Simulated scan of single mutants.
Amino acid sequence: MRFDDRVAVVSGGANGIGWATAERLLDEGARVAVLDREPHAAASQLEKRAVVDASTSERTAVFECDVTDPASVDDAVAAVLDRFGRIDVVASVAGGDNAVDDGLDEEHWNAIVSLNLHGPVRLIRACREALIASKGSIVMVGSVNGVAAYGEPAYAAAKAGLTLLAKNLAVELGPAGVRINVVAPGTVRTRVWDHQGGPDALSPLYPLGRVGEPADIAAAIAFLASDDASWITGVTLPVDGGSLAGPLATMSRLLPN
């Protein structure tokens, strides 16, 4: 129960990694504000959970939020503070790509960077004073695409930007007691793979022999947000089944002799 008496904000919390993170934080005692541009989907998830955990209804709230819209973010965070009175943890999960790599196309680039880099900045900006008051913690979801060349340059550049954002804000906000870190997932079984035949075909590329599950990433987020990581700030933690540890070695095992 590492998050007893704490309030956590999870953006992109209706599905995938975001929902797994909301559940993990609930399991560890937090009150959780789920922010998503699909509030009905988030509410449905919480209703299903409430069937087996009646306290869910008392400890959660859903707020419509589009992280590409500054006013939407500001309104959602104001509503969170009105409902819960404080913010101790921010899990910035909302992000993604449209699965179409349009290279340096202007419209594509702006949309992807707005969602994956500017979106977390908007959320942190809106939560900043509340986090300083609580000496809170921020965890942003990056990607291995932001650490090595896996393609999709707009998405990769946006996710890479989170690493330097975290380092700079760690220095700026550290004296106020606020920590900020990034998790960098590899391939994770989320709905983005629904129209691509599923992610399991990529399992042989991972030294641990499988792709990730949303709960794998949620566990890392919970660790970095908790007091167990109280002396960790400004880092990017790969949660990737070993793909960054030895991609060439992994690939060589798949090549014909």
Rank of each mutant, 00 (worst) to 15 (best):
R6L: 06
A8F: 00
V9F: 00
V9I: 11
S11W: 12
N15Y: 06
G16Y: 10
G16Q: 13
G16C: 10
G16I: 12
W19H: 11
W19R: 15
A20H: 13
E23K: 13
D27V: 06
G29M: 07
A30N: 03
A30I: 01
R31I: 09
A33D: 04
P39E: 06
A41I: 03
K48Q: 15
R49Y: 12
A50Q: 15
A50K: 14
D53L: 12
S55R: 15
T60D: 12
V62C: 12
F63M: 02
C65D: 01
D66N: 06
V67M: 08
D75V: 02
A78C: 03
V80Y: 09
R83M: 00
R83L: 00
R86S: 13
R86L: 02
V89P: 03
V89L: 11
V93A: 02
A94P: 01
G95S: 03
N98V: 13
D101C: 10
G103I: 05
L104P: 01
E106H: 11
N110A: 09
A111G: 09
I112H: 08
G119Q: 08
R125S: 13
I132A: 11
I132N: 00
I132Y: 03
I138H: 04
V141E: 00
N145R: 05
V147Y: 01
V147D: 01
Y150Q: 07
A156H: 12
A156G: 10
K159P: 00
L162V: 04
L165N: 00
L165F: 04
A170W: 04
L173N: 10
A176S: 14
G177Y: 12
R179F: 01
V182P: 00
P185Q: 08
P185T: 11
V188A: 11
R191A: 15
D194E: 14
A201I: 12
L208A: 12
L208K: 14
L208S: 10
G209D: 13
G212N: 13
E213C: 07
P214V: 02
D216I: 09
A220H: 09
A220I: 06
L224K: 05
A225Q: 08
D227P: 08
A229Y: 01
W231Q: 06
T233I: 04
G242W: 10
A249T: 11
T250S: 15
S252V: 06
L254Q: 12
P256S: 04
